[in-house]
Design a protein around this nucleic acid. Structure first.
Length: 879
RNA sequence: GGAGGCAUAGCUCAGUCGGUUAGAGCACUUGCUUCACAUGCAAGGGGUCACAGGUUCGAGUCCUGUUGUCUCCACCA
């Protein structure tokens, strides 16, 4: 087959885009379904439609692409569904900010319909950006099946699910305290809130007791502005200090409202003053206390964070009001003291604004019944977390789950399909639009203004992208999906929701394995963030070092689930590896004649020992890489490919066969060419899932059978391709070469100074043909196997397989030789003693696996052979 | 308050079922214009595997405790 020359320097920018375009054009990413074959499917965690690719995406997509390319080469029906998420809050905020900046308008100024048009325009403008960025990474997603969470089909799925859950009584509307973001102007779910410890104060405030002048109750609060909404003060029923107060009436400071003192178990006597002001409308605990005691909800802070309680403070920002009210309390002598404290403050995960707990009417998913099968699936091992420890995080969350607030006071998203009748107040929930009230026939119907939490639609992603609620081939072929790949930070947001939605609507888990990875941090271990400005743009890395180097960096040097630090040093190391592979391939190509075939091997009888050795090593590598990839040990598998490529293939095998190759016309050269083409070809295939571009570029240059490496067959372990005897021979030769190099370096003998070698060895057959190796790799001018040799004027190098004599005349320092030999003898004797003890231990010999015991015996034999050589050497030196 | 991770070479990290003399990359030292590659080749130095116990024939690996560190969940005004 024809071969093609590779350019002299590895320059990924010259071919990555071209190869990717070709793969797309050929349709390799779209599976051709074959019912005989197993399926492997993945849905991408959809990035925000208007987002930009960051390192977290790059890691996530790289891991998925490794799995997908691996399975595709193994012949699975492999489907990777890509797509994007509408990201309600994030996207709406961006468009609103843009609107404010460019036109000085708010969304309310332009109105819902117009605003939504603007968001869709924004989506059209930026929605393709993240997709094209993904493509730069080389991901092999099936772009013909790309989805968006607000596509028609996915929206239909959302409506179907909402209506179904509502009909089952699992979705309800109710007045609850919700996390309200005054900046985003919407409710948030519990998972969308981040707590941070902040310095604050406890304000101790006196509440006068009605009708008992001079008598007060002192409450401590971190949020004095909520005082306006207090409708009671609570104490613990068992608190003797306040027993006689219960049932009495207090006068609310600054307001003058009369509020009762109630007894409630939830109050801790030993915290604060033991008296708690109850603000049911603005605190989750107070809300519940309020319900228990039938207290009124007095709303004093509105959705923008301003005081909405009539009077002096009306219209003030909550923090301004706090300041003024504290001053006023002080003036009235009602402020007892200000005690500094740190407390956890809730912030919006999108904009960072301090959350205002607010009682409001929201839609909820009742979680208890949905959570049960979702817990069982993981407990039973039906769904498996990799690494397993993340199942604990999941279960802990699932088992303590609270109802999920799914309504958002946004415009961008799936509008809740609930309709209110203005005449009879009936609420109708329906998949199709409602224009007439089914109860009273009125046409005064309004659809719910709120939209659904973004995670509501992404929870359906594993089946909505396969066509559900329609009955499709894709669902039958690819559901449940095989593996979900995502970061641990998103387990509660997304993974858990997909699990219960999948079980509820498909009667089947959405995926079998959840492969969890960690965060990509900067070189100092800090989280990459926009505000810190320490983020590294994956696209910059790609343009400088190539996508393959980036992918290598992200896939290596890190165990599953652990965070990793990203540094350009690592990318450079990866690029150097690519460069090494590139140049090794160039060397191979320079030697080919056009007769070779990357998938074939010469007849076994023609193979030399080194050929059999590398084939044995290759075979071992194939098995190990396959085993590790099956276990999601992508980093371990990659390290093994790296070691094989650099050490075994480049540093040893290529060097070993150079003498053969340079005699181009020989039969031996022909065999070497055939072997190395096969070994290189298989190595490229093993590496392809990690580094798709360079492997394809080289593969296409080599003689190859498949029109692309990405659809070539993945190498598989071949039990016949094991030659332990030849492998042992080569190990002996390599050990001797290393020992000679070592000694020469120690003695500062330059490689240019060649010297004759005399070998005394019981493995004469092994070393008979090693002359070429020794002259090339151990600076031998001549070489002779002898029965014994006079050591005068020689250095003597002892290994377990041979003793080598090098006549280096005046360079030999007898004293140094003696010292060195004695040291080595001591070391070897120590090892012999250690192993001897081990083997003399009855417990070890009887209980350890036979293979382990045998290995120890073998080691002992080698050490003993070495010791014999050293003792002889010492005897000569002492003569 | 509850749960979990991490602690191994100067740095960043691997170390799979408990079984080689504990490894890699980077950094460091020495030598090398060896005809694929200086983004390279060869050789080398560098470890109390946080600490203390325990289990075992055998522990970096399993168990208990301690210390340090990071994270998640919950949250009491």
């Amino acid at each position: 087959m024809a071969t093609r020359e590779l350019p002299k320097t590895y320059s990924p920018a010259d071919f990555e885009d071209r190869l990717y375009a070709n793969w797309c054009e050929k349709g390799y990413f779209t599976p051709e379904y074959d019912a005989e074959k197993p399926s492997f499917s993945i849905v991408i965690p959809p990035p925000n439609v208007t987002g930009q690719l960051h390192m977290g995406h790059a890691l996530d997509e790289t891991l998925q692409d490794i799995l997908v390319r691996y399975r595709r080469m193994q012949g699975y029906n492999t489907l990777w569904i890509p797509g994007t998420d509408h990201a309600g809050i994030a996207t709406q905020i961006k468009v609103e900010e843009n609107l404010r900046k460019e036109q000085g308008l708010t969304r309310h100024d332009v109105g819902r319909e117009k605003f939504l048009e603007m968001v869709w325009d924004w989506k059209k403008k930026y929605g393709s950006r993240i997709i094209s960025q993904l493509k730069k990474l080389g991901v092999s997603c099936d772009w013909t099946r790309e989805h968006f969470t607000m596509d028609e089909g996915l929206s239909a799925a959302v409506r179907r699910v909402f209506v179904s859950l509502y009909d089952k009584g699992l979705i309800y509307r109710g007045l609850r305290i919700t996390n309200w973001c005054p900046h985003c102007n919407t409710a948030l779910s519990d998972t969308e809130v981040e707590y941070r410890d902040e310095a604050g104060n406890f304000w101790h405030i006196r509440y006068p007791v009605k009708g008992e002048p001079g008598k007060y109750v002192i409450v401590a609060t971190t949020r004095p502005e909520t005082l306006l909404g207090d409708t009671a003060v609570a104490v613990n029923p068992d608190d003797d200090r306040y027993k006689d107060l219960v049932g009495k009436t207090l006068i609310l400071p600054l307001v003058g409202r009369e509020i009762p003192v109630v007894a409630d178990e939830a109050v801790l006597s030993d915290f604060g003053t033991g008296c708690v002001k109850i603000t049911p409308a603005h605190d989750p605990n107070d809300f519940e206390t309020g319900q228990r005691h039938g207290l009124e909800n007095v709303f004093v802070i509105d959705g923008t964070g301003k005081i909405c309680f009539p009077g002096k403070y009306f219209g003030m920002d909550r923090y301004e009001a706090r300041k003024v009210m504290v001053e006023d309390l002080e003036k009235e002598g009602l402020l007892v003291k200000i005690e500094p404290c740190t407390h956890a403050v809730a912030h919006c995960y999108r904009c960072g604004t301090v959350i205002e707990p607010l009682a409001s009417k929201q839609w909820f998913v009742a979680m208890k019944t949905l959570a049960e099968p979702a817990i069982k699936a993981v407990k039973d091992g039906d769904i498996r977390y990799v690494p397993d420890r993340f199942s604990k995080i999941y279960l802990n969350w699932m088992e303590n789950i609270r109802d999920w607030c799914i309504s958002r006071q946004l415009w961008w998203g799936h509008r809740i399909p609930a309709y209110y009748c203005d005449d009879c107040s009936e609420i109708t929930v329906s998949e199709s639009d409602v224009t007439v009230c089914p109860k009273c026939g009125s046409r005064k119907i309004r659809q719910e203004e709120d939209v659904l939490d973004t995670w509501f639609s992404s929870a359906l992603w594993p089946f909505s992208t396969l066509g559900w609620p329609k009955d499709t081939d894709d669902i039958r072929r690819y559901y449940p999906t095989s593996t979900l790949v995502t970061g641990y930070d998103i387990i509660t947001f997304w993974v858990s929701k997909m699990i219960f939605m999948g079980l509820e609507f498909m009667d089947e888990k959405p995926f079998t394995d959840v492969f969890i990875h960690g965060l990509v941090r900067d070189a100092q271990g800090r989280k990459m963030s926009k505000s810190l400005g320490n983020g590294i743009d994956p696209l910059d890395v790609i343009s400088q070092y190539g996508a393959d180097a980036l992918r290598y960096t992200l896939a290596s040097g890190n165990a599953p689930g652990n965070d990793m630090r990203f540094s350009t040093e690592k990318v450079e190391a990866a690029r150097n590896f690519a460069n090494k592979l590139w140049n090794a391939s160039r060397f191979v190509l320079m030697n080919l004649t056009g007769e070779e075939d990357g998938d074939d091997l010469p007849p076994e009888k023609d193979l030399e020992a080194e050929d059999k050795w590398i084939l044995t090593e290759l075979n071992r590598l194939i098995k190990s890489v396959t085993d590790n990839l099956d276990k999601y040990e992508v980093g371990v598998a990659l390290a093994e490919i790296y070691d094989f490529t650099w050490d075994i293939l480049c540093d040893w095998y290529i060097e070993l066969i150079k003498p053969r190759l340079f005699d181009r016309e020989s039969k031996s050269a022909e065999v070497a060419r055939k072997v190395i083409v096969r070994v290189l070809s298989d190595t490229l295939k093993l590496l392809h899932p990690y580094m798709p571009f360079i492997t394809e570029e080289i593969y296409l240059s080599l003689p190859h059978d498949s029109e692309s490496i990405m659809i070539a067959n993945y190498p598989s372990y071949d039990p016949k391709m094991n030659y332990p005897a030849d492998a042992a021979t080569m190990e002996r030769i390599i050990t001797v070469i290393r020992a000679i190099r070592n000694r020469r370096a120690e003695m500062n003998v330059p490689p240019s100074k060649k010297a004759k070698l005399y070998l005394v060895t019981p493995y004469a057959d092994d070393f008979q043909k090693a002359g070429a190796f020794l002259s090339k790799l151990a600076s031998a001018s001549e070489y002779e196997i002898v029965d014994n040799h006079e050591s005068d004027g020689c250095v003597r190098i002892v290994t377990d397989a041979a003793t080598v004599f090098i006549p280096l005349g005046e360079l030999v320092d007898l004293e140094k030789e003696k010292t060195r030999t004695e040291a080595e003898l001591a070391r070897v004797s120590g090892e012999i003693e250690r192993i001897g003890k081990k083997l003399a231990n009855e417990g070890f010999v009887s209980k350890a696996p036979a293979a382990v015991v045998d290995a120890e015996r073998e080691k002992l034999a080698k050490y003993e052979a070495t010791r014999a050589g050293l003792i002889e050497a010492l005897a000569k030196l002492n003569k």
